[in-house]
Amino acid sequence: MAAVLRIENLSKAFKLGFIPRTKEILRGISLSVDSGEIFGYLGPNGAGKTTTLKCVLGLIFPDNGLIEIFGHPHLSLEGKERIGYLPENPYFYEYLTAAEFLDFYAQLFGLRKKGREEKIRSLLRLVGLEKTRGLQLRKFSRGMLQRIGLAQALVNDPELLFLDEPLGGLDPLGRKEVRDIIIRLRQEGKTVLLCSHILQDIEMICDHVAIIVSGKIISQGALQDLISEKILFTEVTLSGLAFDELISLGEPLWARGEKIFLRVLHEENIEKLTVLVHGRKGKIHSLVPRTETLEDIFVGMVKQE
């Protein structure tokens, strides 16, 4: 697949303080995003995720490095015509209504009046804000601002979307809706670069990830390659046995009525446990193997760095 975004050896430093001191924010970032994938860009606060995005979008000028969007230099209008961007904690023109706001952004892409009206209607429907089209943005809640922000990012039907913390500030239902929209966008053939702290969401929807720590990418690749299939431990809920009898097989964590919750670390103990439960005419209510998650990998890597 062709790379829609290519970043090579990107670096950026800022001068901070009264007596200026140089602080390196990005230290030789290189990454490539292929067409049609959801790319997760992870990192702790202050790692340089947003700075990378700002360099790509022409909001700040990198000291070194190369950025290409669809093969065009990143500052060229050809590339910008085909991208959408939702910033972190979006602030918009609060004196505009939702419809006026989207109309303004649609005009920047040269859309004609008739086309704009249809576009606005479909976007408001997509993000579930059709009933608030006449409401000023100053009266919007944080979650509603996030949704209207997503709508403005989609106003030009972009092929590549940059979403900076798109799930921040949303309730569980809102998070699911936005996640579904992102998945639908991938099905439509769009490419999404997603910065997020919410690793479960990234794990659920991303194809590729890159982890950035202190301005350097420490790991990147396909999600299934990063997460191993190895079982870390198994969580078992059972009844019919005493708490003390289980200590040799695992780590009993709690007991509620007859039910005991046990964490079994070694796979060979699972078989011993099932034999024991059957022998004592007990019952296994659930048995859940826990494999390594993106969170485990992320925490491990950040600590290592």
Partner: peptide, 8 residues
């Protein structure tokens, strides 16, 4: 931010 990221 959103304005400058548009083709202007």
């Amino acid at each position: 931010f959103t304005l400058i990221s548009k083709p202007i």
